[in-house]
């Protein structure tokens, strides 16, 4: 019994020590990536600096992802002109990637969709690949918020987080000092 107890304690220590941060992921630098979108254009996270970016991992075989997508489309439509970017990253591997663009087209979605066919990016952001999985990235490319899974109503919290980040972005632009004069 003592062996059991000691073992459990060791494992729980491993669990608890790094998890001491109650705001999971907040403030960490989002891993950089460059992926191609479904129209063959390369997209890099670093190009999203100065914007509010929601990265959402999904797959064609993931039912909750399909249910969440219409809500993300509405979010994209509502805030895309306010410095908001939505990057839908498909975690479909090479085997099923042909299905991605037809699915997007069949639903009439217009948000950007990127392909991560060798699972490198999803493995960095969410190693256990539970889908859907979202991270909200700030203008400084640091993580503001993470969310795993989708159940009805989650879109309310997602929109609240996005709205807060956009408001903070707008406020920062308002109070930003004028650029220093450049020497001729």
């Amino acid at each position: 019994m003592r062996r059991w107890l000691a073992l459990v304690l060791v494992f729980m220590f491993a669990l608890a020590a790094p998890g001491a941060n109650p705001q999971a992921g907040e403030g960490q630098t989002a891993p950089e990536f460059t992926l191609r979108d479904i129209d063959n254009k390369p997209v890099s996270l670093k190009d999203m600096a100065g914007k509010v970016t929601l990265i959402s991992f999904w797959a064609t075989w993931c039912a909750p992802c399909q249910v969440e997508m219409p809500h993300l489309q509405k979010l994209y439509d509502a805030y895309k002109d306010q410095g908001f970017v939505l990057l839908m990253i498909s975690a479909d591997d090479a085997r099923s990637v042909s299905r991605v663009k037809p699915l997007i087209k069949s639903k009439g979605y217009s948000f950007p969709v990127l392909l991560d066919t060798d699972t490198k990016v999803v493995s960095q952001y969410n190693p256990n690949k539970t889908l859907p999985y979202s991270e909200l990235i700030g203008p400084d490319l640091k993580v503001l918020w993470q969310h795993q899974g989708y159940t009805a109503g989650d879109e309310v919290e997602t929109e609240r987080r996005v709205k807060l980040a956009i408001e903070a972005l707008a406020a920062a632009k308002t109070v930003a000092p004028p650029a220093a004069p450049v020497a001729p």
Partner: peptide, 18 residues
């Protein structure tokens, strides 16, 4: 350790399949 797939994975596909 890294993950890699070439083309549609016919020749090489070592990716996570959780």
């Amino acid at each position: 350790d890294g993950y890699i797939a070439f083309g549609r994975g016919l020749a090489l596909s070592l990716v996570k399949n959780t």
